Computed example of a mutant assay.
Amino acid sequence: MAIQWFPGHMHLTKKAISERIKEIDVVIELLDARLPGSSANPMLAELTSRRPALKVINKQDLADPARTALWLAHYNALPNTRAIELDASETAPARRLIQAARELAPLRGGMVKPMRVLICGIPNVGKSTLINTLTGKRAAKTGDEAGITKAEQRISLADDFYLYDTPGMLWPRIIVAKSGYNLAASGAIGRNAFDEEEVALELLDYLLQNYPALLQARYKVELTDGITDEQLLEAIGRKRGAVLPRGKVNLQKAAEIVIHEFRAATLGRITLETPEEFAQWLAAGQLIDAERQVKKDGLENQRLIRLKKIPRPPRAAS
Rank of each mutant, 00 (worst) to 15 (best):
4 Q>C: 09
7 P>M: 05
9 H>T: 03
17 I>V: 10
17 I>Q: 04
20 R>C: 05
21 I>F: 01
21 I>D: 03
22 K>S: 04
25 D>T: 00
26 V>T: 06
27 V>T: 15
47 L>C: 01
48 T>E: 13
48 T>C: 15
48 T>H: 07
52 P>V: 00
65 P>Q: 00
66 A>M: 12
68 T>E: 03
74 H>M: 08
75 Y>N: 01
77 A>F: 09
77 A>Q: 10
80 N>A: 13
83 A>D: 08
86 L>R: 06
88 A>Y: 06
89 S>C: 07
91 T>A: 09
94 A>V: 12
95 R>L: 01
98 I>E: 04
98 I>F: 00
99 Q>T: 15
99 Q>C: 03
99 Q>F: 08
101 A>R: 04
103 E>F: 03
104 L>C: 09
107 L>F: 10
108 R>K: 13
110 G>F: 11
111 M>R: 15
111 M>I: 14
114 P>F: 00
120 C>N: 03
120 C>H: 06
121 G>K: 09
126 G>A: 13
129 T>A: 13
131 I>A: 01
131 I>L: 07
134 L>E: 01
138 R>G: 02
138 R>W: 04
143 G>W: 10
148 I>H: 10
148 I>M: 07
149 T>S: 08
149 T>H: 09
150 K>V: 07
150 K>M: 05
156 S>C: 02
158 A>C: 14
159 D>L: 02
160 D>W: 00
166 T>K: 06
168 G>T: 09
169 M>H: 07
174 I>G: 06
174 I>P: 09
176 V>I: 14
180 G>R: 00
182 N>H: 14
184 A>C: 11
187 G>M: 05
189 I>K: 06
190 G>A: 04
190 G>W: 06
194 F>G: 02
195 D>E: 15
196 E>T: 15
199 V>E: 09
199 V>N: 03
205 D>K: 06
208 L>C: 12
212 P>D: 02
223 L>R: 02
231 Q>E: 13
232 L>R: 00
232 L>E: 01
234 E>H: 02
240 R>E: 10
240 R>H: 13
241 G>L: 07
247 G>M: 07
251 L>C: 01
253 K>S: 08
254 A>I: 02
255 A>L: 15
259 I>W: 04
260 H>S: 11
264 A>E: 15
266 T>V: 07
277 E>I: 05
283 A>R: 13
287 L>N: 14
292 R>H: 11
298 G>Q: 09
299 L>I: 15
301 N>D: 12
302 Q>T: 11
302 Q>E: 09
304 L>A: 12
306 R>A: 09
309 K>G: 03
309 K>M: 13
310 I>F: 11
